[in-house]
Design a protein around this nucleic acid. Structure first.
Lengths: 157, 157
DNA sequence: TGTACCGGTGTTACACTATAACGGTTTTTT
DNA sequence: AAAAAACCGTTATAGTGTAACACCGGTACA
């Protein structure tokens, strides 16, 4: 585990994050339709999680406000292709911070400001996955989430 | 990490699990009211997760069927006091398999039969918690969940 | 003995999250 | 060009979770 300064909680050139996401999509030959682009753009504004209905409200194209399935379809596609992650503890979604090398991602999420730090963990460190595999379990997905209050929000409170 | 044979997926004396839970409640001086008992009993029947509404349906006392808040209140209490865990990936609940020594629990959950194996991980292995702490993050809760299909269900399919 | 408090319960109503299903359109493949 | 697949718009509904308020029963304490 190399990462000791979570990206979301430190200053950084956020344009790089956006570019990396677009590049990853391009390299994988993904089809970013209008809604998918809009949803991804929204999430890429910041390393914060957003609920589906929150996204839905901000979604709008040529004055057209879409219905829930539109948002959920876009999200499903983006999650499937690794450009977006779902934060289970918040029923919310966040743009992937490392679309290039995103294998095993863990998240540190602030309850207050909803910032999300994404941490890649080496699979050798994921004991749970080993145990699962050893007992013949076929893993489909894995999550690791730490929820609490970030340093900034502690100060503000 | 010692656990190499997940309890839920192996034969074991399940009465011990139930007894351990009751003992833990007693030792902590918890107040197990009728609904809390009923909910806990339901979950202790097996190492399987159940949704709140599934629990609600099976909940009944002297012919009285309670409303949703009743189930949620009991679940909230049991989760708070460590007798029950919430499985985020399934919006479901499962009885704690190790109420004595339950600090950092990870879960291996089968999508098909909903069996849940609970694995304790040494906190030294929880890198995410370290990183969080190092950056001044105040952790409130942490989860680790692996979802997939267990060996038995693979055979059945 | 009262009375003030507190945790638990019953009840109603509602908020939030997510999906099924169907038909039409566009895009891709053959 | 025809067939198949993917996408989108729309309606309706399913599933999950909570706010709020009234009531009840115990208990602490004046």
């Amino acid at each position: 585990m190399k990462n000791t300064v979570p990206l979301a909680f430190s200053d950084h050139n956020h344009e790089k994050c956006r570019a990396a996401s677009i590049n990853a999509a391009y390299r994988q030959g993904l089809r970013l339709t209008k809604w998918r682009q809009l949803v991804l753009d929204l999430l890429l504004e910041d390393h914060r999680s957003m609920g589906a209905y929150e996204i839905l409200e901000k979604l709008e194209c040529h004055g057209v406000k879409p219905q829930p399935p539109t948002a959920y379809r876009a999200l499903e596609y983006l999650v499937e292709h690794g450009l977006v992650h779902r934060i289970e503890k918040q029923n919310a979604y966040v743009a992937c911070a490392r679309p290039d090398m995103c294998r095993n991602a863990g998240f540190i999420v602030c309850k207050t400001c909803r910032k999300v730090a994404e941490i890649e963990y080496a699979s050798s460190e994921a004991d749970l996955l080993h145990i699962a595999a050893e007992s013949g379990f076929e893993t489909k997905s894995a999550i690791m989430e730490v929820e609490g209050v970030c340093a900034d929000c502690q100060k503000s409170a």
